[in-house]
Structures are given as structure tokens and as C-alpha cells.
């Protein structure tokens, strides 16, 4: 039997705009239209697709082939439906749905904010005083041996960049904060940002920076930062002459075993000439490590807005 009941919207209107309740709300700080913070936090994580099965994120494996990087936008309508589904739990009557409706506008607003706090909360970082109210979540997926083989891979996203001429170099600007940075599988990484990045840089992890010589087997010493105008970690010269180079000396047994004492002596000799050593006149273990570190590799990827749908190829970016 269907009674002639007002629908959710009408009920809500009656509830909200009726003189009685309006007065009530004015005078009693009625906490209607507010979800408790822990529920909002949960929905914030949900909006960042925490817990959504991978096959629903990438429904076809061919969308993310091996050794690939894919840029995407996050469909706000999709995540909104996700939130609707979560809020539907246990709703049994038109009154329950009306309550959901009454908080809906507020939920949409506060989700924007709580999404931006998720990673900071995970990192136990200080929360910002204000958050960006206008965000369009976007990001990238990487499926590569880079993810499995280089734990700690650094992925930095920038909103802008400028191109410097001679030598040609990209200067990134306006860094975008990560919303989510998570390994979904041993070789799959998901990164979500508050905006579509224009420039993404993959950096070799610095704690795993390896040691080695230049491809010609030579080593050019680096400044140690003990004296002014000697920025630590930079090569003493960009165009080394033979006098600026030494090599990694090896033990005389043909097994490729490094003779550390001889290698150090070679480095000290050059650095002494350049007056770069500390007052002790020796290389400490950390000083020695700086000398042999190969510089971190960095690769930049540019993305762009899709203007014209190009249905046949993969040249959108």
C-alpha cells in the first residue's frame, strides 16, 4: 500500500524551511548537515580510491602495458557515486535518504578538503591552515621494472616549467603536492595529484645512488663544500682536462677489486691542488662516498591537455 507521503525533497524542505525548525536551528546550534569528522576522513580516503580493486581502476590490462606510464584525470562523478554507495549503507526509508540529502552539499565540499589531508595524516605531518578549494584530481600510473627494481623512486610533478636555452634544460616551477602515492602491485605505482601535472620528473632514488666511474673509467672529483664557492656535490669542473681526472685504481690481481687507498690518494692529490679539502687534509668516509657517487638520473615527462580527440594513436602527451 502506497501512502500519499511527501517525497524526500519535499519532506526535507518542510523540515528545513518550516518556521519551527528554522527557529530551532537558529537558536540551538542544531548540528544538522554535518557529518562527524571520522566519517568525512573515511570518505576522503575513499575519494582517493583507497580500497577500489585494481581491475576497476584499469579494467583492461592493455590500457597499462608493461613498461608504460599513463596519465589520467579522475572522474569526479565516479568518485561521487562511490561516496553515494558508501552513504547508502543501512538506509531503509525515505527519511534516511532525506538525511543523506541534507548533508550532501556539505559532504561534497568537505571531501575536497579531506582528500588533501590524507597523505599528510599518513605522514603524521602538520595539517595546513587552509586547503585548496578548487582541485581537479589527476595523476599517473606507472607499470615498469623501475617500480620493482628501484624502491624509493622519486616522482615529482609540476604545474609549470620553462625551457632554458643553451644548455637546453627544463626548469620546473610550481610543484604539485601528492594526494596519494601508492604501490598497487610490485611493479605498479599510482600517483594522484590535485591538478594535472604538466611536467613529471622521475628521479633515481638518492639513498640508492650507486657508485661508479664515468663510462671512460675516469673520475672527476666533486667539491666537498668546506670552502666558500665550492657547492658540495658538484663537479670541480664541467670540462675536465686530464689533470682534473683520476681513476678508480684496482688491486693488481685482475679481479676488479678496488684499491681504495690508491683511489683516495688520487682524489686527494687533485682536491689538494684545488684547495677543496677539509682542515684534516684527508677524505673522510662521507667525503669519499661523494666522490664516487654517480649523479642521479632524472627523466622528465611532459603532459598536455588533450584538445582534439585523436583516436588512433598514443601521441596525446
Amino acid at each position: 500500500m502506497i501512502k500519499n507521503l511527501p517525497d524526500g525533497g519535499q519532506y526535507l524542505e518542510a523540515l528545513k524551511s518550516g518556521m519551527q525548525v528554522k527557529k530551532l536551528r537558529l537558536s540551538l546550534n542544531f548540528d544538522e548537515s554535518v557529518l562527524p569528522p571520522y566519517l568525512e576522513d573515511w570518505l576522503g580516503k575513499l575519494s582517493l580510491l583507497y580500497g577500489v580493486p585494481f581491475e576497476h581502476l584499469v579494467p583492461n590490462a592493455e590500457m597499462l602495458p608493461i613498461e608504460s606510464m599513463r596519465f589520467f584525470y579522475v572522474d569526479p562523478n565516479w568518485t561521487s557515486c562511490l561516496v553515494d554507495g558508501a552513504l547508502s549503507v543501512g538506509a531503509q526509508s525515505s527519511r534516511d535518504t532525506a538525511i543523506t540529502k541534507s548533508v550532501y552539499a556539505q559532504v561534497q565540499l568537505s571531501l575536497n578538503a579531506s582528500m588533501q589531508l590524507v597523505r599528510r595524516r599518513l605522514a603524521q605531518a602538520e595539517l595546513p591552515e587552509e586547503v585548496n578549494s578548487n582541485i581537479a584530481v589527476a595523476g599517473l600510473l606507472i607499470r615498469s621494472q623501475l617500480i620493482s627494481g628501484w624502491p624509493g623512486l622519486e616522482i615529482a610533478a609540476y604545474e609549470n616549467y620553462t625551457v632554458q636555452q643553451n644548455p637546453e634544460k627544463l626548469i620546473p616551477a610550481d610543484k604539485i603536492e601528492n594526494l596519494r602515492f601508492e604501490r598497487l602491485a610490485p611493479d605498479v605505482m599510482l600517483c594522484l595529484y590535485a591538478k594535472m601535472p604538466k611536467l613529471v620528473q622521475l628521479n633515481e632514488p638518492k639513498e640508492g645512488l650507486c657508485f661508479g666511474a664515468r663510462s671512460n673509467g675516469k673520475v672527476v672529483p666533486r667539491w666537498l663544500g668546506y670552502h666558500p664557492n665550492q657547492p658540495a656535490g658538484q663537479f670541480i669542473t664541467e670540462n675536465p682536462t686530464p689533470g682534473d681526472e683520476t681513476e678508480i685504481f684496482k688491486r693488481n690481481n685482475g679481479k676488479g677489486v678496488i684499491d681504495i687507498a690508491a683511489t683516495k690518494a688520487g682524489l686527494v692529490k687533485i682536491l689538494k691542488v684545488k684547495n677543496a679539502l677539509s682542515s684534516s687534509g684527508e677524505l673522510s668516509p662521507a667525503d669519499f662516498a661523494i666522490q664516487l657517487i654517480k649523479s642521479a638520473e632524472q627523466q622528465s615527462f611532459l603532459s598536455g591537455e588533450i584538445v582534439i580527440p585523436n583516436i588512433n594513436d598514443c601521441t596525446d602527451y
Binding site: 580510491l49 577500489v52 576497476h56 581502476l57 584499469v58 579494467p59 599513463r70 596519465f71 589520467f72 584525470y73 579522475v74 572522474d75 569526479p76 562523478n77 565516479w78 568518485t79 561521487s80 557515486c81 562511490l82 553515494d84 554507495g85 552513504l87 547508502s88 538506509a91 535518504t97 543523506t100 540529502k101 550532501y104 581537479a136 589527476a138 595523476g139 600510473l141 594535472m196 591537455e305 588533450i306 580527440p309 596525446d316
Partner: peptide, 22 residues
Amino acid sequence: WYRGPLTPVKLDFVKLDPFFSA
């Protein structure tokens, strides 16, 4: 047709009312 949350095109937020069923 199915499309996940990650889309190659930028979509505006157009949904204003909650859905109460799939």
C-alpha cells in the same frame, strides 16, 4: 560500457544529487 575512475579526458562535476541505488 564501463569506464573506471581514471579517464583520459577531463570531466566536469555534473552530478548534484546523490544516488540511492546502483
